[in-house]
């Protein structure tokens, strides 16, 4: 058995209108890893995951789960995977318990209904109709169904959308626990915080192409760190050491640097030597959000698409 459970190579997905949502994406996920696909709405996350779930055949390239084609070898792959779609998928007139019973009936080796609902904290809601659940509760039910067959690989498409902060944290804890038990997780999210919290590795998708892959630390390391401060009124920015790549807006100065420690040391020494007080001094490594926004900005062929701004905040 190989250590790689998900393998994607040159994957493409075109739709009937001629739109190509996935344009040659390649990545692989190792056993027991949490891998996050990150991107704005319309970046191609769901289109990619649906190909791995075997819901459609790719128009080019290949997708493999356990070394098998998830579309043509459906019967072999499905008993080992659990799927949470981006949206719903349960009849609104069934109760939670009836939904679990139905899904258990089409799942081999299903957990007992009570256990599945306790996992996601829905134990007390089993007699409630699906249509009366809140958005967050529906996501929990969906997660419980994805976990029902104790899958080796879990596909989670925006698992915490609509959840309150507590539900989100519970879900993260559950996903980490599953990883500890050896489950491989492929998750899509547009919450950067979620990717930073959960992912062992992540890939950033933009307009159907994969622009960056790595650990969250590696991804942020590719972006410059930032030092910000405000100069006193009687110190013009031109007095700053020339080695600092400083950009000034009035008295506000921003330095972008790949050598945060060295540049910060130089700045502080200069300030000390000249008796300059740096107002609101702030130095930080790039966050995933900055990395992401910069990528989106640089690659935005049609200019910045403001309606697609990332929802990640802290």
């Amino acid at each position: 058995m190989t250590d790689t459970v998900i393998e994607v190579e040159g994957l493409r997905r075109g739709y009937s209108g001629g739109f190509e949502a996935v344009r040659g994406v390649s990545f692989s996920v190792r056993r027991g890893e949490i891998f996050a696909l990150l991107g704005t709405n319309g970046a191609g996350k769901t289109s990619t995951v649906e190909l791995l779930e075997g819901l459609a055949a790719p128009s080019g390239g290949r997708a493999r789960v356990f070394g098998l084609d998830p579309y043509t070898r459906r019967a072999e792959v499905r008993p080992r995977t659990g799927v949470m779609l981006q949206e719903g998928g349960f009849p609104s007139d069934l109760s939670v318990a009836e939904t679990v019973r139905m899904w258990g009936g089409v799942t081999s080796g299903a957990r007992p209904a009570g256990e599945a609902l306790e996992l996601v904290g829905l134990g007390a809601r089993s007699s409630v109709r699906v249509k009366q659940l809140s958005g967050g509760e529906r996501r929990r039910l969906d997660l419980a169904m994805a976990l029902l067959g104790r899958p080796e690989v879990l596909f989670l498409d925006e698992p915490t959308t609509g959840m309150d902060p507590e539900g989100r944290r519970d879900t993260w804890a559950l996903v980490r626990e599953l990883r500890a038990q050896g489950t491989t997780v492929l998750l899509t999210t547009h919450y950067l915080e979620e990717a930073e919290e959960l992912a062992d590795r992540l890939a950033i998708l933009h307009e159907g192409e994969l622009v960056l892959t790595g650990t969250p630390a590696e991804v942020t390391a590719t972006r410059p760190a930032r030092i910000r401060f405000t100069l006193p009124a009687d110190v013009p920015p031109a007095w700053l050491p020339l080695t600092l790549r400083a950009a000034a807006h009035g008295r506000d100065v921003e330095v972008r640097t790949g050598r945060l420690q060295a540049d910060l040391t130089e700045l502080l020494r200069w300030a000390h030597d000249h008796g300059v007080e740096l107002g609101g001094l702030d130095a930080r490594s790039a966050s995933l959000e900055e990395a992401f926004l910069e990528i989106a900005r640089n690659r935005g062929s049609a200019g910045g698409r403001t309606e697609d701004t990332m929802a990640g905040t802290r």
Partner: peptide, 21 residues
């Protein structure tokens, strides 16, 4: 139609049941 519009059919297809089932 109702099951399709509620995405029930799509969700079922991610599971072990075959299309004909």
């Amino acid at each position: 139609v109702a099951r399709r519009e509620e995405l029930v059919l799509k969700r079922l297809r991610t599971g072990e049941a075959g299309d004909l089932e």
